[in-house]
Amino acid sequence: MAKIVAICATTHHPFYYKTSKMAEAEAPPFASTWIEKVSRYRETLTRANPDVLVMIGSDHFHQLWLSAMPQFLVGNAPFYDANYYNEEREFGLPQLLLRGEVELSNFILTRGLEVGFDLAFSNELRVDHSITCPIFTIRPEADLPIVPIYTNIFAPPLPQPKRFVDLGIAIREIVDAWPSDKRVAIIGTGHLSLELGGPRQFGPHGPDPEFDAKAVEWISQGKIDEALAEVTLESLHQPGNATHGFMDFMLMMGVAKGQVADYSDTLDLFHTMEAYFTWYPEGK
């Protein structure tokens, strides 16, 4: 059976790539700390030596549109073009070509149907920065095949938080059961408190530092039940209008099955708090 060698959950900050490429004189004051923290986080994946990456993210109205909006979708293709013109324009993110791991995509899709997740699929998926940000931060070689899984945290009506946790648990069990000798890392990106296109956007910190502190505690300590007791689709409006992206972290807590994180770090930035968590299911 396949081995899950690392589970990584992180925020995806599209400005990291550009910031990390700036000359020292031009870079903002927080750049060196940010780069250092990301580099330490990268090491948590590198040391696990994965062969395949299952990557959870959320399309930002790039390919997925309101004329047919899946709640959960698995990429099932041998290759994925990555990043869009408007991400290059806004964030300076280059376009990439990533390889796919079709055998695992098929396994997740068919086994998902068997265990109660009727996952949508795409045979031609151009992934966006929710998938490529962690490539740039923790696997910049972009050399491993991926299985992208998209969740809808963006276009209401959204799935319930519990469904995200349950999908995370299902993904963990399905990957564990994949008949393969591959070493798999499961990487997911979400948000802590975040406001986009609203009055609380781009403040000196994330819009709700109290929520962020609580969220970091839930994730790092594996407190799934506490998070589920407090988080609802309605409550997530309070910390910021884009905070529903926290449900991708809840999915990752499901993947980690309530285990305490082996690695946990944060960085308070303008606009949002960055957070980095890694679990090693089979021990360090």
């Binding site: 930002h60 109205f61 408007n86 806004e90 963006f154 276009a155 986009l196 296109g197 609203g198 956007q201 209008n241 884009a242």
Partner: peptide, 8 residues
């Protein structure tokens, strides 16, 4: 209108 679309 979706605030992400407008902002972007």
């Amino acid at each position: 209108a979706h605030p992400f679309l407008t902002l972007t």
